[in-house]
Each structure stands twice: as C-alpha cells, then as structure tokens.
Design a protein around this nucleic acid. Structure first.
Lengths: 140, 140
DNA sequence: CTTGCACCTCTAGCCACTAGAGGATGTAGG
DNA sequence: CCTACATCCTCTAGTGGCTAGAGGTGCAAG
C-alpha cells in the first residue's frame, strides 16, 4: 500500500499538480482520500483517469466532451454510439481548422514573399493586412 | 462632416461594438472624439485601423503582435524588417499547428474507424483515449 | 411627445488553466 | 531530536480576447 501523492500522480500522468487540483474542483476527478495530515492520496485508478483526461485534452477535446466520455467509460454496458459521435464532431472541427489554417498559410507566404525589406510604406505585410481585398484566398 | 457612430464603425469594419470599446480600453485604438451627448465619433482613419486589426486577428495574430504592427504602420519610414519577422514567426506557428492537427486527424480517423458501435467496453474511441501507447502517430 | 433603438459605463463571466501568497506537513541528514 | 528543505495545503487573482448583462442616457422617427 504505497501512497500516491499528488506530486507522484503528476509525474506519472504528466498533468501538472495545480491542474489536478483544478480537475478535482470542476468534478472531472473524484475527491481522493486524504492522509492524516490532510494530503491527497491517489489510487491507481485515479492515475488511469488522469492519463485519459490528459490524452483527450491533447487531442483537443473540451472538458465537457471529456466529462461525457468519462461518464461513458464508467458504465461499460452502454452503447458507444455517443463516444463515436463526440469523436466524429471533433474530427469535423479538426478538418475545418486544417482547411482554414492552410489557406492562412498561403496568405502569410504571399505576404512574406512580397516583402523586400524596404520601408514600411511599401511593405507587403502591412499592406495586405490593411486591405483584406488583396487576399488571394477567401476563407477567413 | 457625417459622424461615424460606434454602431456604424462596427458595421463597416465587421468588429462588434463591445469589441471596439474593448480595443480602445487596451489601447489598440485611440480614444475618439465624443459628441455633445458623450457618444463616440470616429474618423475614416479609425475605420481603416479597425479593418487592419480585424484582418490581423482573423489571420491569428495576437494582440501584442498587432500592436507592434500598428506601431510600424504609424511610422512609414521605418524598415519593415520587424513586420516581416512577425509574419514569419506567425507562419512557423501556423505550419506547426497544421502538422499537429494533421496527425491528430489521422488519430481520430483510426479511432472512429475502429468503432463498431458495440458496447463501451469494447469501444476503440474510449480505448485509444485511455492508452496513449495505442497512438500510431507520435506528436502530441 | 413618446416609442424604441442605439448608445453609455461598469461589473462579471467565459475557458482551461497558471501564478503567487502564506502556511502546514513530510522526510532526510546530522 | 532538530533542522533544513521539498512538497503539500487553501485561497485569491490573473491570463487572453472577448461576451453578456444591468441600469441608465441620447437621439431620430412617427
């Protein structure tokens, strides 16, 4: 029965200590037992949950989506259709984001290519920013 | 001498009214003259500045970067090397973001493809989220 | 002259944390 | 046993870039 402190949990899960406390405060993570001196003491299951949360956050899921996914995970008899829907919605967001960033990249490249390091009043960067009409792509 | 109200400025620039007031409060936009009844009255140059800010925000520049760009714009004799540097830094960010989103997209697609709408305890989505080791791409 | 919209200021809220103050606890060495 | 020091505790406030709402004033049309 080794006790897992919050620092240890942080090291093992890759979630920062204040962030773990934050997740507890918003109810993503259950309140753990406390030591005699009032210090949090975690179980291995908490570490798995933290790893799950961290991974989902890295994949860009919002806290509310993660909350839904965790609820599903807690009841393995449920159909996973909701999990599937959440992931699909996220995929759509990501695809949209990639499209607009790609257009943006082209825009920035045009801007930078046009810049010949002259004075500001003939700077392509400033000029393009000042006038959306000069954009070659219509996206944003 | 037609007076440009904040609502008119908003319509013409595409920046929302409270956002215009916000930009004034953080010093991105100069305090405009006021009418007798204490209402803001803008000049055409303010509209251009607002359009510039809006466009830059759409291109994902942070307010601090925009502040720097605006300072440059205000002094057209300066070299535009700084503007160029700001745009290049932004380009690097955007490229990085596209790379990681693309990897993420692949991850989500794998997750979703594996999901056969069974019960949660055999759900690929939940499973992959619970175990980073199952990720096929190393990025996040 | 009244209706109703647009304007004003101010405060608080959003998300997901992060930073810092000020104090208690736990542990390793002497 | 004492001390030093890391780690822990709670609490409040701050981040960025707005957005929402309360409670009040200005202004133009009918």
């Amino acid at each position: 029965m080794k006790k897992i402190t919050i620092g240890e949990a942080s090291r093992q899960s890759g979630v920062k200590v204040p962030t773990i406390r934050y997740y507890e405060s918003i109810g993503l993570l259950a309140e753990p037992n406390r030591s005699e001196g009032n210090q949090r003491s975690y179980e291995p299951s908490d570490l798995r949950r933290l790893a799950f949360i961290r991974h989902a956050r890295e994949l860009g899921f919002e806290v509310d989506a993660i909350r839904a996914l965790l609820t599903l995970q807690d009841d393995p008899n449920q159909s996973c259709a909701s999990a599937d829907a959440i992931a699909k919605a996220r995929l759509v967001e990501v695809e949209q984001r990639i499209r607009s960033l790609t257009a943006l990249k082209a825009e920035l490249e045009t801007m930078i290519k046009g810049c010949v390091h002259g004075r500001v009043d003939e700077c392509r960067v400033i000029e393009v920013l000042a006038d959306h009409g000069q954009c070659t792509h219509s996206h944003h």
